[in-house]
Design a protein around this nucleic acid. Structure first.
Lengths: 157, 157
DNA sequence: GGTTGACCTCAAGTTGACTTGAAGTTGTAG
DNA sequence: CTACAACTTCAAGTCAACTTGAGGTCAACC
């Protein structure tokens, strides 16, 4: 069974060693042991890191990701919670698709002032609207991150 | 012509007044004047704020957004640059769709250890792969944000 | 068996995106 | 005309996600 040291993991994942230690400290990943002082890793960790990067790019915080997968990389949510996450992500994707439409419009529309262009206004309104009713039962774990005209008094802690 | 004070804008956009001042300081938005000391806004600003929220949720930094639209809300990129942005966003969306597939899989797959599930591994590899060749000619403005196994030595500034 | 370069820890620093607080000003309701 | 709630500025604080640095250890090659 192949094992990796921190430099291998860094090289193969593209993530700096300092970040790997940081992630371990947070409990996001774990080394399978030490050789002397030095961490050694199972190749699995590369998959986990991929998952973390993916989650980050979807706007999940490290805390959220930690809640979804334990340091062993095992899913740690109920089926319903996973379904809710998928739903959340879907909503996010729909929003990004709308933004992409806006961008395409901007790239093509010759209007002098976009804010006065009917179509532009409608695209934005639609995009905003799709975010508007996020006062729903979704957001299982109070996903504190992921921007977007959040409600005032967002209270944390 | 309807005008708004900062409290109106805050209420109607859901963005706190402190953030509106902060955005103005950064040059992301502008008030159309003052009544005494107090800022007054054109209703346009609501669209702009929607756009900003949208951009943030797509992972663009405030700096990037500022580069895309001036404080007047006018698009400030060439057609080609807009097209590149759309492309960038599309790639991001494709990645999120892959992540959603992973999540759906996790919600459904009964494997005891997911890291050992063939399909899971493949989904992640695919998702990672789609991000892998981001050493392309895209990323016009060196989009420093938006996570994902970034290359080491990402040097900014 | 000594050197050395890659690892280690732990504390402090940085950046982006805001928020909070203190202290001052003012439009407007009474 | 007076109160005062709502605005203002400006400095400092916070939080997440890392990075950097100082000082120490040690596995592996010569």
């Amino acid at each position: 069974m192949e094992i990796l040291d921190i430099a291998d993991v860094a090289r193969r994942s593209g993530i700096p060693a300092s970040t790997l230690r940081f992630y371990e400290e947070l409990g996001l990943i774990a080394s399978i042991g030490r050789r002397g002082l030095r961490r050694i890793y199972a190749p699995d960790v590369l998959l986990q890191l991929g998952l973390i990067a993916l989650g980050r790019s979807a706007g999940f915080s490290l805390e959220e990701i930690k809640g979804m997968f334990g340091p062993d990389g095992q899913p740690a949510l109920s089926r319903a919670q996973w379904q809710a996450k998928a739903e959340e992500l879907d909503a996010h994707i729909r929003q990004l698709v709308k933004l992409r439409d806006v961008i395409h419009h901007v790239a093509d529309c010759p209007a002098p002032r976009h804010l006065e262009c009917e179509q532009f206004q409608q695209l934005i309104s639609a995009a905003i609207a799709s975010r508007r009713q996020d006062t729903g039962p979704i957001s299982v774990t109070a996903s504190s991150s992921r921007a977007g005209m959040r409600k005032p008094r967002n209270r944390s802690k």
